[in-house]
Each structure stands twice: as structure tokens, then as C-alpha cells.
Nucleic acid binder design. Structure first.
Lengths: 114, 114
DNA sequence: CAGATACATCGATGGTTGTCAATGAAAGAA
DNA sequence: TTCTTTCATTGACAACCATCGATGTATCTG
């Protein structure tokens, strides 16, 4: 669990949606789904997510150097990914350990290909 | 084909990428992939794409009213979707007919779930 | 306790983006 | 040709966003 709770998009709204190719999204569906894709729509966040997802766990301290971004910037991006439900953080001691949420990636994938 | 040719991301760069969960994206890969997800990261474009993708063809004139957006705004969004390779436009007579590019949706889906 | 470490938050700044009115360009109709 | 239709482009504006230095808040160490 994250120390400062992060508001994640309501799962109920997201899970409802059928693929883009089969139905026209409602305005409410589109707004929430767009938040997931917008989180994926930044190159720094994509690399950040791939770093976290391709390992079991990663702490922020190990992400700054390979990304070449400042600590506040990394913190900013992890927050956005977490708010989109794509990653979750667990604070142990001084470190925050991040892990990916595969079900969330699956939700996004299902919108593109059933 | 579109009357004014639209620059689409190089397919070679995109097709190269393995799922986010298996490898860390390079900066170049991340930049190009982010452009696809950024195109999907707007609610109006998501509804636009789902309207086009859930029918065989759609002309811009039929998209303005259900979207509730002005004609320049719709034109702006179709351009961004086309530059991301997600839709293609064909001009026949006075109308531009848009259709989705399933292979492109598939490329994006493969990044999230192999 | 004091000092160091890991991360979040704040504030500022420069760049990007969504939106629309006005205008342009091209095709068909009269 | 002149008028209408369809869509792209331009220009402008407000809102948003990525970035980082400075600061705050815990947590661990000595």
C-alpha cells in the first residue's frame, strides 16, 4: 500500500468496456479509458513502466539514473502511473517498491484487441 | 490515400518492440510508441476512433454531430489519429472516408499483452 | 540526539495541446 | 462561371503538462 493513498480510476467503469472496434464509447467511458492511455502516452513513463514491469520490483532510487531525470520528475511520473492503476507502490523502510499491475495492462489491451 | 500525405511513424521502429513486461524500452522506441498511446489518450479521439472502427467507413461529416465538436476540431483529431497510423483516410469526391487500421491497434495491444 | 537517505510536495517556468472562428482549397451542382 | 459543400489550415487563446530546484517528511544510522 502506498503511504499517501493514491486515487485510482474506478475499476467498475473500466472493466465494462468492450473493444473499440465493436462499440462506440460513451463520454464517461472515454474519459476514464483515456486516462490510462494518456499515462502510457509519455516516453519517460513508458520506459519507467517497462523498467518496473520487466523486474519483479524496483525502487525509485534505482530509476532516476537510467532515466536521466531528476528525483521530483520520477516521483511525478510514478504518481501518474499509479493513479492510472498501472503500477502500485509498497513502502518498506525508507524505500518505495513499485510493481506493475498486469490486470490493468490487460484491461487496456482488451480495448485494442479482444 | 489521403490528399495531403500524412507523415506516419516508421513501421519498422514500431514493429520491433517486445512487450513492456519483457524488456526495457530504448529512448527511441519509447518516443515512437508514446505517440500511439498519446493519440489514444484523449477522450474525444477515443470516441472518434471507436466510431470509425465500429463501422466499415465513416466520413468526417457524420462525426461532428455525435461528437459535439466543431469541424476544425474533428479535423484536428483525425489528423493525429492518422499520424499515429491508427486510421487512414481516402478522399472520394467531396468526402473523406476514414477506416481503422487493425494492424496498428494490434501493435499497441502487443506492447501491453503478448 | 544529530546527520544522512528516500521520497513526496510546492512553486515556477517553458513547452505542448484542445478548442474554435475565420479563411483557404478542391470538388460537385446549377 | 458562380454557388454550395466538404474538409484542411491558420491564428489565437486558455488550459494543461513535463521538468527541476527548494523544501518538507519519514525512516534509518551512529
Amino acid at each position: 500500500m502506498n503511504p499517501n493513498p493514491i486515487a485510482v480510476i474506478d475499476d467498475g467503469v473500466i472493466d465494462c468496456c468492450s473493444p473499440l472496434t465493436s462499440d462506440v464509447l460513451s463520454e464517461v467511458e472515454a474519459r476514464d479509458v483515456a486516462r490510462i492511455f494518456a499515462a502510457l502516452g509519455d516516453p519517460v513513463r513508458l520506459r519507467l513502466l517497462s523498467m518496473i514491469a520487466s523486474t519483479n520490483e524496483a525502487c525509485s532510487c534505482n530509476l532516476e539514473k537510467p532515466l536521466g531525470k531528476s528525483q521530483p520528475t520520477v516521483s511525478h511520473h510514478t504518481r501518474i502511473l499509479a493513479e492510472a492503476g498501472l503500477i502500485e507502490g509498497e513502502k518498506r523502510g525508507r524505500w518505495t517498491w513499485w510493481h506493475a499491475v498486469p490486470e490493468r495492462l490487460e484491461v487496456a489491451a482488451r480495448l485494442l484487441r479482444d
